[in-house]
Simulated scan of single mutants.
Amino acid sequence: MNKTRRYIDIDRKAVKSLILIFLFLLIMTGCGKKEEVVSTSEEGGPIIDFEKLKKENGDIFAWIYVPGTPINGPILQNADGDDSFYASHNVAKEPDAKGCFYIEAANMANMCDFNEVVHGVPTEELSKFLDRSYFEGQQYIHVYMEGNALIYYIMAAYTRENTRLLEQYDFSYASGCQQFIDEIYSGRTMNKNIRSGWETGLEPSHFLLTLTSDDSDRQIVVIGCLVGDAAGKIDREIDWGDPEEDFSTIGWSKP
């Protein structure tokens, strides 16, 4: 295993500007002087009072914001490990067919997994990213957390077989991360957009965020790669071993 923090290089001037904005937002988030749970900064981004949000629902751990889209709201993880709860309930834990943004129990709420899979984005919103002109116009996913703010650069969008990513790929091993990277780069069709300059370069040591729809007949994914970490907290151990060998060593069969 080795510990690493790596990002793909993009326009550093643009990212630096965004990080400065994020640092301002972090200060504002912690000042405790806001009357509203969410307000808007001069740059158009949200300013979040996580203390008040968590009083309303302790399952809230982050806020996602994609400029130029309606994707703007809290991300939750069910404390009881029920991965289907927020598919049919809103932030107030009330039954709601629209659900809300959430991650599964298999993902970590500190955003340090190789691939943080965010469910609950309406299919009609993700399908817009399949249009090349729309895709080119949307570049960043912002994630605000208590004490940190992250920037992901949107580098791919496509349709795929409707399978559960966290079940299909074992992201706890570098080999599972590489398998997903291979999926991203393979089979370019009319339904796949890859950001120019990003046709190669992803590695298991990077950090991804995947927005996914939950349609019954197809799955749309929009993938961002971490390029900014205001507090420098995003890191993880990477296991470059062979999962088959690890399971056989302890006498188990890999599921």
Rank of each mutant, 00 (worst) to 15 (best):
E146L: 06
L53R: 01
H142S: 04
Y144I: 05
E94N: 09
F50S: 03
E42I: 13
K192C: 06
K54R: 15
S127W: 11
V121W: 01
L165E: 03
V227N: 07
D83W: 11
N57G: 13
E51C: 05
I194M: 15
S41L: 05
T210N: 08
N191R: 08
G201K: 02
S127D: 08
I181F: 08
N2H: 12
P122W: 14
D113C: 14
V118H: 03
N78I: 09
K13F: 11
I154P: 08
N107V: 12
A79V: 10
M111C: 09
R164W: 09
D239Y: 15
Y102P: 01
E244L: 14
D59M: 01
Q138V: 09
L150I: 10
I181L: 03
Y134M: 02
Y158I: 11
E167C: 01
S186T: 06
I21N: 11
K254Y: 14
L23H: 10
K93E: 15
K3S: 15
Y173C: 05
P95N: 13
F207A: 07
I71L: 05
Y169D: 01
I238C: 10
P95L: 15
F114P: 06
F24H: 13
I21Y: 02
F180V: 00
S248D: 10
R218Q: 14
S248V: 11
R195I: 05
L126T: 13
A231D: 13
D214I: 07
F50M: 03
L18P: 00
V117Y: 04
R188C: 08
Y65C: 02
D96M: 09
Y134G: 01
C177Q: 04
P122Y: 14
D214L: 13
S88P: 04
R188T: 11
D214C: 08
G187F: 13
D96G: 10
A14G: 09
F207R: 06
K128C: 10
I184H: 07
L130H: 08
K55Q: 14
S17Q: 11
Y86C: 00
G187H: 12
K233G: 02
M28V: 04
M190G: 13
N148W: 03
I103M: 09
K16I: 00
Y153W: 04
K128P: 01
G45Y: 07
E124A: 03
G224Q: 06
E244V: 14
I250Q: 10
K233S: 09
D242N: 14
I48N: 03
E244N: 15
Y102R: 06
F247P: 05
I27G: 09
Y144E: 00
G73V: 06
E94D: 13
S205W: 08
S175N: 02
Y65K: 00
A92F: 05
N78C: 13
A92Q: 15
R12F: 00
Y144D: 00
S196I: 13
N90V: 03
K52G: 15
I223F: 02
G58C: 01
A156M: 12
D239G: 05
W240E: 08
D229W: 01
D49G: 04
L226S: 04
S84Q: 10
